[in-house]
Nucleic acid binder design. Structure first.
Lengths: 99, 99
DNA sequence: GCCATCGGAAAGCCTAGACTTACCGTTCGT
DNA sequence: ACGAACGGTAAGTCTAGGCTTTCCGATGGC
């Protein structure tokens, strides 16, 4: 899931969609890559559950999927708490010379 | 910054460190890759501001950098709010046939 | 002082995947 | 019904980068 956002182009697309739904052509218009490339990226993002599409005539309107975004936030929130706990423990138990 | 977490191996390392600080050899011991590979990943994570290292004798103890983690959480929180706003607006203004 | 251990650096290989061009199916407008 | 626009698919190319092996500097123990 985070792998999908690892690619800069894909992240840009995701951020574009964050500002509001867009068609494929509109997205491609704001990017330095061809339209098929955008299509491929959208497929990855869709498979990752980060965006969703709705058909409007011949156009496909893409938008960020709140579920996916929430999942990511949840992941980092959990991670944050875990890291905090680790910090607290590290503060108490001074690091050993040899584990 | 998210590019650093895009790689599965690197994300695994990051998650390992989330459970507590570790030396390079210890990290490599839990992974199916060689130690130099871990070193390279740690360099990337360090450059991304996601981990920090402290020297302990000949060992380097790596730990997640709270700053970096907080930055990521901030990014997604901001994104979340932005997406919410976009949703609200999309709900009001029904999508046009042509933009 | 010497040896062992730990970890980063350099060089090279090799695959994943990002991008392009070309093509085709679908849907709408007239 | 026909043409145009939109978008997904296929095939092929090419580079980024992940991994390995090798080597070296630095620190600590004995």
């Amino acid at each position: 899931m985070l792998e999908a956002l690892g690619d800069p182009t894909r992240r840009t697309i995701f951020e574009l969609l964050g500002a509001g739904p867009r068609s494929v052509a509109e997205i491609a218009g704001d990017l330095p890559v061809s339209r098929p490339a955008v299509s491929q990226h959208l497929k990855v993002l869709r498979d990752a559950g980060l965006v969703a599409s709705t058909a409007m005539g011949t156009r496909r309107i893409y938008a960020v999927d709140p579920q996916g975004l929430a999942a990511i936030r949840g992941y980092f929130d959990q991670f944050w708490n875990q890291a905090l706990a680790a910090f607290a423990q590290a503060a108490e138990n001074p690091p050993e010379e040899k584990t």
